[in-house]
Design a protein around this nucleic acid. Structure first.
Length: 419
DNA sequence: TCTGGGGTCCTAGGACCC
DNA sequence: TCTGGGGTCCTAGGACCC
């Protein structure tokens, strides 16, 4: 048996834990740079605000309905997430943290009559200990458990628990479940299925597997099998190393001063390097991209991505920043106002498994000591206490005008709240 | 004026090997 | 009429996820 635990309206719920005046009223949380809506309270959903809606398109609605708006406070959400995940993990044989607000549960060895009380225990304890409302779906496969958890959100009378195990029940549910809402079936496939006469999920499960394989490849076939009760995915406990690490941001304005773009690239590179060292990796290839505002007309447009293969794999912020900044300069076009830039680390390998290089003149021990020092200063005194000179004092602005306090991770904010 | 930021897996096709 | 047979590795692009 598999479970899927999914926090309801997670970012909004995090804001509400520390600010109960937000209960019962419409609340939304915005993406970085205050661009789009990425989390909505039930009341906000009722007002017709959809996921990914740009803020400027609903300005009038926000004013009229008195909707409370928040910038994304990822320090807070990440900390709340780990509290939720710890609470869940303590109650089940094992769990896979699937995203910031979701976990798959391995319910092996738990008898059918115990499931219901366990489910109540999990949602109850998470609510009590962390303040976060949680939906829990249970079924024979991960994909079916996902369906069950979505039912919780649709039917309040389920009380956030949905155990979907009887064949008759499953058929009834799938007969009404839109195929596009199934985990693994996105926009393209649901359009394709619809044009082939498949609308609900039960229709899909009745299709011939050969047809599914031909139209949707092996991934689609696995989804089909899972919906038919045949598990294809297990609960993965060990978090694998990332194969790619990316840091990118949109800027508040179009940036014409190219020195500012270079500084941003330095900042993104440092951030990637720090994430890279956390998993003891070294990077073999870097991709830098930057572009002008794609939504704006009548301006000089530019979109570029630069691929830099490294001769010597590295995890040293100073080396990497030097490389990315030097590489980006010749490609920035005069007269272009850049709106977004990013850095991707690719071809990542584990440091201890990377062979040495014959003509490597670098002093790796010294480099390791320096990076260790850099990371420990920044972890102790705050993320950008120690930065490269190239990164310089920050000038590029990011819109983050509705940020709540870091209630759980920043001492100044904690003290403010307590007082 | 204002439009997010991360990731994964799979496949086809090209370049290469003997 | 006739043009080998068996592989691997890499990359770009397309689909998906939250």
């Amino acid at each position: 048996m598999f479970g899927l635990a999914d926090c309801n309206n997670f970012y909004v719920s995090c804001e509400r834990v520390f600010n109960p005046s937000l209960d019962g009223i419409p609340v939304v949380v915005l993406s970085n740079n205050d661009g789009c809506v990425i989390s909505r309270s039930q009341e906000a959903k009722k007002l017709g605000i959809s996921m990914g809606e740009p803020l400027f398109k609903i300005k009038e609605l926000v004013r009229r309905e008195n909707i409370r708006v928040f910038s994304s406070n990822f320090a807070l959400y990440a900390d709340m997430s780990s509290r939720v995940m710890d609470t869940i993990s303590a109650l089940v044989p094992s769990a896979e943290i699937y995203s910031i607000d979701e976990a798959f549960l391995n319910l092996e060895g738990i008898s059918a009559h115990e499931l219901s009380s366990l489910a109540k225990k999990i949602t109850g304890k998470v609510r009590k200990d962390t303040g976060i409302p949680l939906s829990l779906g249970i079924s024979h496969t991960k994909t079916l458990a996902k369906v069950a958890s979505k039912l919780c959100k649709k039917y309040p009378r389920l009380n956030n628990n949905c155990i979907m195990v009887k064949n008759g029940d499953i058929e009834k549910v799938l007969g009404k479940f839109p195929v596009g809402d199934v985990w693994g079936i996105g926009r393209q496939y649901s359009a394709m299925l619809e044009s082939n006469g498949v609308t609900n999920t039960l229709d899909f499960t009745k299709r011939n597997p050969t047809w599914v394989r031909a139209k949707m490849n092996i991934t689609g076939l696995k989804t089909w099998r899972e919906l038919n009760g045949d598990p294809c995915f297990g609960v993965e406990e060990n978090i694998p190393d990332k194969q790619q690490i990316c840091t990118s941001r949109s800027f508040a304005k179009d940036v014409y001063d190219h020195e500012e773009v270079v500084r941003a690239v330095a900042k993104f590179t440092s951030s990637c390097a720090q994430k890279l060292r956390q998993q003891n990796g070294v990077v073999g290839k870097i991709i830098i991209f930057f572009y002008t505002n794609p939504f704006r007309e009548n301006v000089t447009k530019d979109y570029r991505s630069i691929v830099i293969p490294l001769d010597l794999p590295s995890d040293n912020t100073l080396e990497l920043v030097k490389i990315t900044c030097r590489s980006v300069i010749p490609y920035l076009k005069q007269g272009c106002g850049y709106k977004k830039a990013g850095v991707i680390f690719s071809s990542i390998s584990r440091k201890e498994q990377t062979p040495g290089v014959l003509f490597d003149s670098r002093d790796r021990e010294k480099s390791d000591r320096l990076m260790k020092c850099l990371d420990s200063v920044n972890s102790r005194y705050g993320r950008e206490t120690l930065i490269t000179a190239t990164q310089g004092p920050e000038k590029i602005l990011y819109n983050m005008g509705h940020l709540s306090p870091k209630y759980t991770t920043n001492w100044d904010d904690i003290i403010k709240v307590v007082l």
